[in-house]
Nucleic acid binder design. Structure first.
Lengths: 243, 243
DNA sequence: CGTTGGGTTGATCGGTATCAAATAGCGTGG
DNA sequence: CCACGCTATTTGATACCGATCAACCCAACG
């Protein structure tokens, strides 16, 4: 059965962040799902659509983004295995941004009706999911701080550290390395700077021996320097049920 | 009874955005609340606290903010009458930012326990509130776009238009004017620029005949120019139950 | 009054955008 | 296998937006 692999990263997260009960998780795993694959830069959801399913990222990376009138694009969040990037559509019909696959992705689609029925039957599932959307919101708020106040170097460091913490939960970090399949252009769009500038910041970090990013893989070279730059305080991730 | 005035702006919003039923709203209005007043720049919640109540803004303005290590502050959201700025604490204990009163404020505090009991009894109330936190998250995402991609002028215009749309729902807009009790320093912290620069942008907008901001009151002078600058698309506010 | 906090303006500096061009990597088809 | 073309990365030169520093104004208020 592939079910295990499908749900594993989500369940891992829910267990540690919400203290989810085994019964709720089993009920969840019993829901009918449809697996679909997406390729690089393929849109999963487009601004304005009204999806009838929520999707779970089983494997790969996706981003939420918005494009404004003059063509500039802002990446709003980076999503990793175990994330439910459009849970919000359970409660409002229309997506107000794009959701794009960064790399080859496997997504599991879960119908709204099945999900709503389960939540009605098991309030604990609803609470888990509500909390999940709240943590998503907390991450967005920290993203605002990142773009609004930190220097570009700190900004990149912070983004890297946050991603690593979240990927760790999903079991996707090996030693000092993890996947970050964003081009420099996309990293720039996440940070609100150009790709040229992103390139120079990456060079500085490489020369300073902090980290290197090659072919979509980050390697941390100096944890101490990285922390100093990122000033990362992970409380906003609310990683324990009681926090 | 003051209850009417207390709940009015929230109910107004819930009715139009979630199509809330009268019974759910009545049950909500029956909850015991405690009214408290706050003065300018007084902290309602501090980063790290673990509140046992959620607060409803009855009158006045509050902001969420975060201060980073070097002392820089980012304003994350502006809250107006009818907002529930720490609903998230129903699901996680610790606040991860500050909540500060901008002006003289009246807040109504509602105990978590009473709220949770009501939600358990009336799932419709839970759904309304969940949705409310989701719209809050959507506003945060648009805030990221604002800070990350728009020119400072557009950024300010967008902030103004969003606030006006939200204040309209709360019945707080009269003709072309509404209250915006932020100093230029605070407006700058909302937009990720300095107060000096905010001052110059405001001057430009005044000279261009777009809007003026005096003693905490905005007056729109040229709606057309304002729209052109803001490029505001309010779908992310999800103002109708079906959107 | 004097004090204080916001607002306003000017001068200068630095970080980032922009424009341009060269290089490197990688899949495709000849 | 190599040539080709596409895309991403890298570097340089220059322009400009916004930060910073400094001073001054102004209205509110004790």
């Amino acid at each position: 059965m592939t079910t295990d692999k499908t749900w594993a990263p989500l369940f891992e997260r829910l267990r540690t962040t919400t203290g989810a009960g085994q019964e709720d998780l089993q009920a969840l795993a019993a829901l009918p799902i449809a697996l679909r694959h997406y390729g690089e830069n393929q849109a999963v959801l487009r601004d304005g659509e009204q999806p009838s399913d929520c999707c779970l990222i089983v494997d790969g990376f996706c981003v939420r983004s918005k494009t404004i009138a003059d063509g500039k694009r802002q990446i709003l969040s980076i999503h990793i295995p175990g994330d439910l990037p459009n849970l919000q559509n359970l409660h409002y019909a229309t997506v107000d941004h794009d959701l794009v696959a960064l790399s080859d992705c496997t997504l599991a689609f879960i119908g709204h009706k099945a999900l709503k029925d389960l939540i009605a039957q098991r309030p604990g599932v609803g609470n888990m999911f509500w909390r999940d959307t709240l943590v998503d919101a907390a991450i967005s708020r920290e993203w605002i701080v990142n773009v609004g106040q930190r220097s570009t170097t700190s900004r990149l460091a912070h983004l890297i550290v946050e991603l690593r913490e979240r990927l760790r939960l999903a079991g996707r970090v090996i030693d000092d390395m993890f996947a970050l399949p964003l081009t420099q252009e996309q990293l720039g769009e996440a940070m609100g700077v150009t790709s040229v500038h992103t390139n120079r910041i990456l060079r500085d970090l490489r020369i300073a021996g902090v980290l290197e990013l090659q072919r979509g893989t980050v390697r941390i070279l100096n944890e101490h320097k990285l922390q100093e730059l990122a000033q990362f305080d992970g409380r906003y991730l609310h990683l324990s049920p009681s926090s």
